[in-house]
Design a protein around this nucleic acid. Structure first.
Lengths: 213, 213, 213, 213
DNA sequence: GAATAACCGAGACGGTACGTCTAGTCTTGTG
DNA sequence: CACAAGACTAGACGTACCGTCTCGGTTATTC
């Protein structure tokens, strides 16, 4: 049974040189590191990569797409190491986010993507799928272990939980950047939020607002 | 006692036409609304405002400053109405943020500012001082009332509390924009977070993580 | 005695497809006719001929050579028909030149060759040898008949005579193109010039310039 | 009676710097002299003239117009000196044409203009009006003196006469460039052609072609 | 009321990057 | 080897903005 399946139709002509992808991506990241987004021009990337501009436009439609791809290769391993203690693992994930955002190149590029994304839904979609979602999957698995261990209510909406945990950290690294968030922030966020998420059947989740009316 | 004090030195020459500030700001906002940040060029602003480019550069040093100022005039009233119930008032403040971010012009401009700000600390500083801080002051006053009413622990770090409340909302409107946050999000955040902030002397703030070791 | 002589060394591999020469030449002429020299790009020729660019460069070194060859095939028959009257035959040759220059594709291409030739002696040489000289040979034969018939002085420099006859026509079709030369121009040139070339032993060819000295 | 007339409306804004016209023209001619038409790129002209590309495009619509203007300034004085003898003066004019065409920069540029002109009537028109016609006016005046002195028939069509004289020289400098025309060519052309143009009431202008029938 | 000084609209200026196009070469698989 | 397809480097094209400068001309204050 020789199922031919889809079988890539093998395009005609000279195939694209796969090494150029890397040369271009590297040049992109170098330029970003050296001069920020403002110094990232297509012409500079092409020159630094030793590549014609046409080669660049053949593979990416513009600067933003190029940056997304470059950043993706940069941010592959979101693995903070598996911890025995789920709470510590969550802290580790948040702390990894802080370190990445405050120190590295990614910390300069990420806000740009947010900015571009506001007028460019396609860019945002690609970023979400290729960068954000893989990380969220990783995070979600950890939270599931938290449920198994009785740390988190079994009926909790894990997406919402992630919003509560990641949101404050993102806010402090992107928007309220001054004073810069310290290394204890992750633990503070986790401890505060986990209180609310703890399985506590005997406590009313909402402390009677009518006392104020 | 007529203290002359600093007394503006009264500059020589023809004074600046104050109406032009408004014309320029209006043109800026219109262009942003029509074509996004990419369509916002100094030349287009000048043409639309019926003004020479020099007049623009006489008053602002560049595009970013112009945008910050324009946005500031746009976002003056952060007043969601004073509520009797503090909890409802906090929900109102967060919901106002969501509505602003998801619907209006500001929702397109704000991410751009974040992006520009990453490489432009001066821009970020101005934005923080002129837009962010006034809103935080407003929010902080509300939280103080929450302490007075016994809703929030008296020793809570209010800046941190704001991070916990605003962070998730910002995260959902800026970064994890899909699916878009709904009108119930503000209440969910507030209810979850306030549990953790409630004055609860008899409860350990951290629910014994050793059960997992 | 089978003398092997030069005996083409019979190249290895697949032989060149002779039909492609024609396909390329045809495509070249079509493009010239449609959009002029500016529309004649190597890529367009290759596409139209259904041929790879390499095939083109394998046979011609560049655009100019290609055009020369294409024009040559176009302008093969310079035969205006043999006339009994030599004077009429000369008129016919000049008139053929006028018609060719003012009406056809060649009239657009020929000036280009002149232009390219100024910086490209090799091109000019090929053009001269392959297009010009054959026509001059034809013309020269007619003039020889003119000498035989007593129309032209036997000691006349026929190359110079051709310059005197062809020059004015070329000038009117290439340079002083406005107003465009009419069908009577050939006869006017021939009649005027032949006066000077007539065998007239009793007349001094040069009307005594010493009267002015 | 204050006739307002047309009165140039005095354009708004900063006036164009007239020195740049010259800088650009000079750069154009230098580049043409150094590398021929192929080396003449708009970018090179702008760089050499120390000028932005926009400045160039503000004043000329393209490369051809720029070249025409540059050539015009180059070829202003077509004055070979007024000779007592009209015949010598005509020889001088033709010889000046030969020298210009075979030696100088103009000799490289002129053929290019012919080439471009074939597909670019507007360019040809400008060239004719700004370069050619002034020279022809000069030539025509000389021919009129020739009529006055009895050298040329009073009823001669002077435009046609110029074609007969200039045509052969142009042909030898532009098209049949090999062998290159020598310094005696002008005299040969003039002497031959003037025979045909001489006032000769007693001679039939056409030497009986019926002898050949 | 004349001088002075800064304002104003218009638009030229040197630069820089854009995205497209073509030239001429190189690299695939196929014949 | 030839061939079609098309990737590749190089670099010019003409356009768009940037931020500055230079005009003629307009308000204000100061002498």
């Amino acid at each position: 049974m020789t199922l031919t399946e889809t079988e890539a139709p093998r395009p005609l002509g000279r195939p694209r040189d796969p090494r150029l992808d890397e040369a271009i991506t590297t040049a992109t990241l170098e330029l970003l590191a050296e001069g920020g987004y403002g110094a990232l021009t297509i012409e500079a990337v092409a020159t630094r990569a030793g590549v014609g501009k046409a080669t660049l436009y053949r593979r990416w439609t513009g600067k933003e797409q190029l940056v997304v791809d470059a950043v993706r290769t940069l941010s592959e391993p979101p693995e903070p190491g598996r911890q025995a203690d789920v709470r510590d693992e969550i802290v580790g994930l948040l702390e990894a986010l802080r370190r990445k955002s405050t120190s590295s190149l990614a910390g300069r590029i990420f806000p740009r993507l947010i900015g571009e994304g506001a007028d460019n839904p396609e860019l945002m979609r690609r970023y979400r799928e290729q960068v954000l979602e893989p990380r969220r999957d990783r995070f979600r698995a950890t939270l599931r272990r938290g449920i198994d261990q009785g740390l988190i209510r079994p009926d909790a909406d894990l997406d919402h939980v992630m919003d509560l945990l990641v949101g404050p950290m993102a806010y402090r690294t992107l928007i309220r950047t001054d004073p810069p968030p310290g290394p204890d922030l992750a633990a503070r966020i986790v401890d505060d939020v986990l209180v609310a998420l703890a399985p506590r059947p005997e406590t009313a989740p909402r402390p009677a607002p009518q006392e104020d009316a």
